[in-house]
Design a binder for these strands. Structure first.
Length: 561
RNA sequence: GCACCCGUAGCUCAGCGGAUAGAGCGCUUGCCUCCGAAGCAAGAGGUCGCAGGUUCGAGUCUUGCCGGGUGCACCA
């Protein structure tokens, strides 16, 4: 149980006893919320319960100070071992300070739990599917997809740590017009390679990569497709989109993202799932025909208007196949929960997909669309201009080449997904303390180094009571926040809390470590053997927590830099 | 016009209805014969876009306005 919950339990029991003793009235009280106070002198935890209870007890009831005082007095009758002090503060707060002894004992907990330290049982082993990136295989991933990858994969890692069984999935659209356009583009470039003067179509993709694809196909298959007519462009084009899929897989793997499933849109149609869902919707009177197209009655399901799901030419729309896809997620594979990570350029479709899921009869709390705002790329302090039309966009691969996977993931995941962000290429590749990702990795590498210098086996039976320095206790306090951070990030679907926490932990580590620069008695490898052993044990545990935090955002925890 | 997101220090951003709003960069000042200075310590810097409302209490919730972003297809 989270220590914060244990504090809540203490307050709860004290309140019950205060009621039994007639010190506070027996009324329906609000929930006991335990917070982190803003200032250190207010302790480790605080609750404004007594202030919130004011309304519950009414004007005739005790004032907040009296309620807090009664609770405090009851705690004093049977104080829990993990609390050192608890006190009433104006105008009715209760502040709690953890016992140093308890804090020090947690080092053993951290070391015993190892990689699992920070796990919280929020998900209760329920399954969650996280679908992210899912860009069409019509070209290399854009750098903006890097934010999707970082948010989606970090969220998956956070949820796994929060007790969910996580399934990562990439849904690729290999059935729609965009892919047909790519196929046509490849066909044109292939024919041109063979010397035929065929002009590209308006809808063709202009990027140089299309020519790369045509060249690669020619290198492998020679002139074999020279007689393929335009109507059958897909015969050669599909070789191109398959290659693009390979690029995408490779780049995502480089970004430390591994999927459980790559799900093909075309398979839904090919295997008849789309038609089956259509029958289901017809039987529920959720679709109708108009002007030769089939419409979903989405306006009755929370969308602003009805939507076409089958065009008048008989081909399903993207939303149409998405119905079958989400049916598969919820009813075939029966995920308990589904999260889609979408860029802000797709947020207009959120009401439609929500309507679809509602039409299938899925409870609202099983489905979320996490929308993240778009990224601006900065170089030399200037925005990097690009136009997809001209095909000169910056790819995720180029960003990976330039700053590396760790820096890309760190920055892309370190902003709230609600907020538009600037990605500063110069900062991200800077190997100095200006760059937070290096700062945090440096803290880890330092600890790893010192543990190599002086192996910990001597520290196994060490006396952690020798850890009395303020910087040591501050570091411990920070380490022990990890489970709360996991809980917060999971509950809010907000992985950006993790890098912020990792930075704070790295700073506490640096402060602790650097204290020895001014005073040799405070060095980790101090001359007193028993103290040194205790500090090494703390270093070992701190290193573990740093590694766990970095692991949650897919950033490496280097042994040396 | 409508929908969603944002507006917090010079810049980039945190801030789970609570107490005196935080961090990094940048700026100023100290620190390496010493475990990794890719670092540490300290200082200056704020009408939380504006105006109402709810609340014991609002940067946080709500309404309106202003400014910015993204959408508003039988494209995805």
């Amino acid at each position: 149980m989270l220590i914060r919950e244990q504090v809540a339990r203490v307050v709860e029991r004290a309140l019950e006893k205060a009621q039994a003793a007639g010190q506070v009235p027996r009324v329906a009280y609000p929930e006991i919320a335990i917070e982190r106070p803003s200032r250190p002198d207010q302790g480790d935890f605080a609750t404004s319960f007594a202030l919130k209870a004011k309304r519950a007890v009414g004007p005739q009831g005790p004032n907040p100070l009296a309620i807090a005082g009664a609770i405090s007095a009851q705690i004093a009758l049977d104080p829990p071992p993990f609390l050192a002090t608890w006190e009433v503060a104006q105008p009715g707060f209760l502040n709690f300070t953890l016992a140093d002894e308890w804090l020090r004992q947690q080092i053993d907990v951290v070391l015993a739990e190892g990689e699992r330290f920070g796990d919280v049982p929020l998900g209760g082993e329920r399954s969650v599917q996280v679908e992210f990136v899912s860009a069409n295989p019509t070209g290399p991933l854009h750098f903006g997809n890097g934010r999707n990858a970082a948010i989606g994969d970090s969220l998956a890692r956070v949820l796994a740590k929060a007790g969910w069984r996580v399934h990562r999935e990439y849904y690729f659209n290999d059935a729609g017009a965009q892919v047909s356009n790519l196929h046509h583009s490849v066909w044109v470039q292939y024919q041109r390679l063979l010397g035929k003067d065929i002009p590209p179509a308006e809808t063709d993709y202009p990027g140089e990569y299309v020519q790369d694809l045509a060249r690669a196909i020619h290198a492998e298959h020679g002139d074999r497709f020279s007689d393929v007519p335009e109507e059958r462009a897909a015969e050669i084009g599909s070789l191109g989109s398959a290659r693009v899929m390979e690029w995408i897989r490779t780049e995502l793997a480089r970004a430390n993202v591994q999927y459980d499933t790559w799900f093909s849109e075309a398979s839904l149609i090919r295997e008849g799932h789309f038609d089956a869902i259509l029958d289901l919707l017809r039987s529920r009177d959720l679709v109708y025909e108009r002007e030769g197209a089939v419409w979903l009655r989405s306006s009755t399901l929370g969308d602003e208007r009805d939507r076409v799901i089958i065009r008048s030419d008989g081909r399903p729309t993207y939303l149409g196949t998405d119905i079958a896809y989400h049916y598969d997620k919820f009813f075939v594979r029966s995920f308990d929960r589904v999260i889609n990570v979408w860029g802000a350029d797709h947020q207009g479709q959120v009401p439609s997909i929500k309507a679809v899921v509602r039409a299938l009869g899925v409870e609202n709390d099983r489905f979320d669309v996490l929308v993240y705002q778009l990224v601006h790329l900065l170089r030399n302090g200037q925005p990097v201009r690009m136009g997809k039309r001209a095909g000169n966009f910056v790819t995720m691969g180029e960003v990976l080449d330039e700053v590396g996977p760790d820096a890309m993931r760190w920055f892309m995941a370190s902003r709230s997904s609600d907020a538009m962000m600037e990605f500063d290429l110069d900062l991200a590749k800077k190997q100095s303390s200006d760059n937070p990702v290096y700062y945090v990795q440096y803290a880890h590498a330092r600890l790893a180094k010192i543990l190599r210098e002086a192996p910990v086996e001597a520290a196994l039976n060490t006396d952690v009571r020798l850890l009395t320095q303020p910087s040591e206790l501050a570091l411990l306090r920070r380490m022990l926040q990890l489970p709360e951070v996991v809980e917060l990030a999971a509950r809010q679907m907000a992985p950006h809390h993790v890098p912020h926490y990792a930075y704070e932990l790295a700073r506490a580590t640096a402060t602790w470590y650097e204290a020895g620069n001014d005073d040799p008695a405070l060095r980790v490898l101090t001359s007193d053997e028993r103290t040194r052993a205790a500090r090494l044990k703390l270093a070992d545990a701190a290193r573990q927590v740093l590694a766990n935090a970095l692991g949650m955002i897919g950033v490496s925890a280097p042994e040396a830099m």
